[in-house]
């Protein structure tokens, strides 16, 4: 493996290995503190995503490496019309590894096709966001101690939400996974996800628009926000953004060991009164994100050795 563009680029064994390295990092911080000494990570963010960028930068710093980069298109060469392929060939001369976020789908793949250094896709529009999926998998593994035998509720924007499609794809590899897909009709999961992923892998799933209907069955409840930038029509966004708000009351029938996740940032979809509940895992999830990115940087930088 040289780049990480799509979670499908990784075999199940490679994912397991990344999870194991991330867990080892959490237990032995000192052991990894100088692993990337003298190495540089470039964060090329053509659209702002502060928390993803900081997560990558913190990951590299904790490995003893340095970071450079830009955080929006108008402060970069893209504003002058340089192509992605040219930019990564130039930056590849300054940095050892690149994390790229781009509003256009496929941009990191274009970069990977030309780059001399490893490219990590840090999100390309509504398309892929593999390090979010790895974060989710590490969270599930750490909180539930397994990646199989789980009933996973996913709630919110299942139509445009890239994290949702990647998570479904990734979890479909494991045994005895069931999905409860909770969304308003307008934001239901696209047909190709049902046919190409769920049905192809014989995964059991139900669709509902009622967040409480299957609450008692869930091992994981993955909440998502409705993203304004995915809508071409302001009215649709306003109508759908507060469709689901998870609060204490709705969790009444939930299992004691439910794990509530959210890729963050949240807007209104999880009420702050849930934050103190021991089942709320979303802030821990953000922390796991840094550790899995550390494991990934290590893996990609050691590729050619």
């Amino acid at each position: 493996m040289k780049h990480l563009i799509d979670i499908k680029d990784l075999s199940t064994e490679e994912i397991d290995e990344l999870i194991n390295v991330a867990k080892d990092i959490m237990d032995n911080r000192q052991k990894y503190a100088k692993k990337c000494e003298g190495k540089k990570l470039a964060t090329l963010f053509y659209e702002p995503s502060t928390r993803t960028r900081l997560s990558f930068e913190a990951a590299m710093m904790e490995l003893g490496g340095n970071v450079l980069g830009f955080s929006s298109a108008n402060s970069s060469s893209a504003a002058k019309g340089e192509s992605v392929a040219d930019t990564v060939r130039v930056i590849g001369g300054y940095a050892d590894i690149i994390a790229m976020r781009h509003p256009k789908e496929g941009a990191p793949l274009v970069a990977a096709m030309k780059s001399e250094v490893p490219i990590i896709n840090a999100g390309d529009g509504g398309h892929n966001h593999p390090t979010q999926t790895l974060t989710d998998l590490l969270t599930i593994q750490c909180e539930k101690h397994r990646l199989s035998n789980l009933t996973i509720g996913i709630c919110g924007d299942l139509k445009f939400g890239r994290t949702v499609h990647s998570l479904i794809t990734a979890m479909s590899r494991y045994a005895n996974i069931k999905f409860v897909l909770i969304s308003p009709e307008e934001l239901q999961i696209p047909d190709y996800v049902k046919t190409d992923i769920l049905e192809k892998n014989h995964i059991e799933y139900v669709e509902t628009n009622d967040i409480e209907e299957y609450m008692q069955d869930l091992d994981i409840l993955y909440m998502t926000r409705v993203q304004k930038e995915r809508f071409f029509n302001e009215d649709d966004y306003i109508r759908l953004k507060d469709y689901y708000i998870l609060n204490k009351e709705k969790l009444e029938n939930a299992k004691e060991d439910l794990c509530i996740m959210h890729p963050l940032p949240r807007v209104n979809e999880i009420s702050v009164d849930v934050d103190d509940d021991k089942r709320a895992c979303y802030f821990k999830q953000a922390k796991y994100g840094k550790f899995i990115r550390m494991a990934l940087i290590l893996k990609l930088l050691n590729f050619e050795k």
């Binding site: 992605v84 509003p103 256009k104 789908e105 496929g106 793949l109 390309d124 398309h127």
Partner: peptide
Amino acid sequence: KNPRCITSIEQEL
């Protein structure tokens, strides 16, 4: 023809 695709802004690809 996807308007969100990188090919929509980089004509030489």
